[in-house]
Amino acid sequence: MNINATLLGQAISFTLFVLFCMKYVWPPLIAAIEERQKKIADGLASADKAAKDLKLAEAKATDQLKDAKAQAATIIDAANKRKSQIVDEAKDEAHAERVKILAQAEAEVEAERNRLKEELRKQVAGLAIAGAEKIIERSIDAAANSDIVDKIVAEL
C-alpha cells in the first residue's frame, strides 16, 4: 500500500476545486438554466393568458351582440306598437270626422228639405188659392172666404 500524505494534498486540492466550482462555475450555469426555465414559463403563461383573453373577448362580443339584438327587438316592438297606435288614432279621427260630416250633411239636407217644403207649401197654397179663387170667382167674394183659405194653407 502506498497511501500517504499525497492523498491528503489531493483531497485538499479537490475540496478547493469543488468549492471554486460551487462559487464560480455552478451559479452562472444554474442562472442560465433558470433563465431559460423562466423564459419558457413566461412564454407559456402569456400564451395561456392570450388564449384566456381571446375567450373573454369572444364571450364579450357574443354578449354585446345579444344585447344589440335584444335592443333592436325592443325598438322594433315599440315601433310596431306606435304604428298601431297611430293607425288606431287615425281611424278614430277619421270616424269622428265622418260622423261630423254626416251630421252636417244631414243637417243641411234637413234644412234644404224644410226650405223646399216651405216653398212647396207656399206654392201649393198659392195654387190652391188660385184654384179656389177660380172656383169661387163666380160665387163669392175672395175677401169673405180668405179665412177658410188661410186655414187650408195652414193645414198643408
Binding site: T6, G9, I12, S13, L16, F17, F20, C21, V25
Partner: peptide, 21 residues
C-alpha cells in the same frame, strides 16, 4: 503536481484544474 509536498499541491493543482474545465 502530485509529486510535490502535499501541503503545496493545492497552489498548482487548483489553478490547473480550473484551467482544465
Amino acid at each position: 503536481i502530485a509529486l510535490m509536498p502535499w501541503y503545496l499541491q493545492w497552489g498548482l493543482s487548483v489553478p490547473w484544474a480550473i484551467f482544465h474545465i
